[in-house]
Design a protein around this nucleic acid. Sequence first.
RNA 1: CGGGGCGUGGCUCAGUCUGGUAGAGCGCCAGCUUUGGGAGCUGGAUGUCGUGGGUUCAAAUCCCACCGCCCCGACCA
Length: 577
Amino acid sequence: MRWSRQLLPTLREVPLEAEIPSHQLLLRAGLIRRLGAGLYTFLPAGLRALRKVERIVREEMDRAGALEVLMPALQPAELWERTGRLETMKDVMFHIGDRQERGLVLGPTHEEVITDLAAREINSWRQLPRTFYQIQTKFRDEIRPRFGLMRAKEFIMKDAYSFDADTEGALRSYRAMYEAYERIFRRCGLRAKAVEADTGAMGGKSSHEFMVLAESGEDGVIECDHCSYAANRERAEAREVAAAWPEDAAPMEIVPTPGARTIEEVSKFLDAPPARLVKTLIYLADERPIAALVPGDRGLNEIKLRQALGAAVVRLADDATIERVTGAPVGFAGPAGLQIPIVADWRLRGARGVVSGANRADAHVRHLDLARDVSADISWADLAFPRAGDPCPRCAEGTLRELRGIEVGHVFLLGTKYSEALHAEYLDEAGARKTIIMGCYGIGVTRTLQAVIEQRHDANGIVWPVTIAPYPVEILALNMQSPSCVAAAEAAETALAAAGIEALYDDRDARAGVKFNDADLLGLPYRVSIGDRSLGRGVVEIKRRADGRVTEVPPSELAATLATMIREEEARLSDGA
RNA sequence: CGGGGCGUGGCUCAGUCUGGUAGAGCGCCAGCUUUGGGAGCUGGAUGUCGUGGGUUCAAAUCCCACCGCCCCGACCA
């Protein structure tokens, strides 16, 4: 492909709309363009890379024995009613109607559709296990689309669903997908890490997320520096350790703290470290007000709170409720004197000599002793987010550290949530009716593409792995005014085509510097520079984008040399070396 | 949805406070020179200043409403 006939609009300057490197590079390298918030067009080169990711996904799904299908993106709302998700997921779904005003939704995921299919088509234990997958556009009315393809309203997902006769089988299917995912990300040149995760709206029993570690990642990842424990920050467990609270027999005392509402303000005002403050948050647990207590220097994990309370929904109480239950404006709540149930993080066990709100405007208390001064019953639970430096919940020696990650894949062991609701059942060998055990497995294909750029770029541009680069090779004619240079470049183009190597030939009548910079920006793995200088010595230059290593070869050996280089790098990526 | 910011040629931005001829760099087109790391010169094209309304002799600039986009939070591949 010649650059002059391709649409590759590279940008010199960083478009205002992009914040993180991968998003900037997608735009600058001419791979995508924005249509609206969370809506992107793939330009030819971007689409080539996307198709290569899809191909790897497809190959690995097929290798794992999964069967490809294609389900409608447009789905009857009625189907979603049957699993209850029309209600629970209504905010993320696009709802539409046809001319008969039949309710339709644009599929944000496909558990309902595939389970409906399985319910109709799978009847016997002889048909199990089966895993189906598709690569298809998903629609989600994201609260806030962001970072280009990272969180879009419309994106391409590979979703797979396993159907098994029993739990052991389901675990095998889960394992097969887990291993396929490891291979997929490795082949895409990504360092991805599987971490324990929450099941969220999907439901189910257990799950792992595949995280690409990156500064710009939207998820917090906790891992142990000693053992293999790793989890999403939301899901991460903690080992209970007794805190040593200093002796403080002084009686609780109310002190005026005009205007000091936040932890920082109170901490500053009373000259007490945040760890010596008790953060009191008023929540509505299934619409019932409760107080949740965490140390002032920790965040409260609402997922843990919900689980500790056994509630379906928890949300921060509105100002009116807070004023009613604490008798004070927002910012002055404390456990002493509260008449509502209190659940406290166990890190606060034995807390004394601490500061909290006084349940009265512009006042806090100090020398609070939770056991002595709080009359309401306190139930204890793990409510706070773990953080770097905490002890590992799994091993005795380890300390946790905190990282950021991009979630590129997620595997769930679902159980029977959908198969029960949609009657996906089979007859076992004894003729007994059983419910199928399911698993579901997603990969954000478009997100994976961007994650590769996020993880593999330098100051000059993208550093593609050969496996998903739009083209593995770029031929660069350094001087289009020199007939010998052009002739050599065209010869190289022909030779590579004959060898089955896809190459982008930069035939623009531009200065060498412009082409070099665009080549670095686009980041194709092998750059072949053809100029009269090296031609005079009887060679052309091959430069690897990843490490800048230059190899000089006679033009006659160019195709064979590149073919070997490409094959070796592909092999290296599949072996994970 | 709450909070913050921004909308001026294709891109990056100045001009807005203090109303008075719409600008720069890059990109684009033509020509000449140049040709191994974003060249030089000459000439040229491109703007309903997000939209609507208002104030004013006069609005990119002041006021109101709306729309769009970006960033921070509750969601997730």
